[in-house]
């Protein structure tokens, strides 16, 4: 991870945007596998744990993946300019998501799949509540 004091150069920005894209796509994949792991009979506890660990570690990286100067004016991204215009709200949403992902991962580690199932909805909501204001539509 590149940490930057000043605004990133174009190359640095594009590199971060690529990392960000991969991280977000990885989150989506983890969510999809998580569903299938939970729905299996019996639930696939190992797969569920792998996915929740990925989600928690990716969630922790989110604030550093959105430095100023990596918006749609720099390159192709669905990140909306509102992320930087409403920075405190964005950071709060990413914090909420991290809290939900950590709680989910902790539940998965205990092996209580019913609890994972229940907490899973909080993660869904946290994803949505940040995507709604801060992510542009797919096309």
């Amino acid at each position: 991870m590149v940490m930057l004091a000043a605004a990133p150069s174009k190359d640095q920005a594009l590199q971060i945007m690529k990392q960000r894209h991969d991280a977000m796509e990885g989150l989506g994949k983890a969510m999809k596998q998580l569903h299938r792991g939970l729905d299996a009979t019996p639930p696939d506890v190992n797969s569920v744990r792998t996915q929740t660990a990925t989600m928690a570690s990716t969630a922790a990286k989110i604030p550093s993946l959105f430095p100023a100067g990596t918006g749609p004016d720099v390159g192709k991204t669905r990140a909306k300019p509102e992320i930087w215009k409403q920075q405190p709200l964005f950071l709060k949403k990413s914090k909420d998501f991290l809290a939900a992902a950590l709680a989910l991962d902790a539940a998965a580690k205990t092996g209580d799949m019913n609890k994972v199932m229940a907490l899973h909805e909080d993660v869904d909501k946290a994803c949505k509540s940040c995507h709604d204001p801060f992510r542009a539509p797919e096309h």
């Binding site: 989150l27 989506g28 969510m31 995507h131």
Partner: peptide
């Protein structure tokens, strides 16, 4: 089908 974020799944997606 499932949605791109893995939040919603069609009833037979699994």
């Amino acid at each position: 089908a499932e949605d791109e974020d893995g939040i919603y799944m069609g009833p037979l997606a699994r």
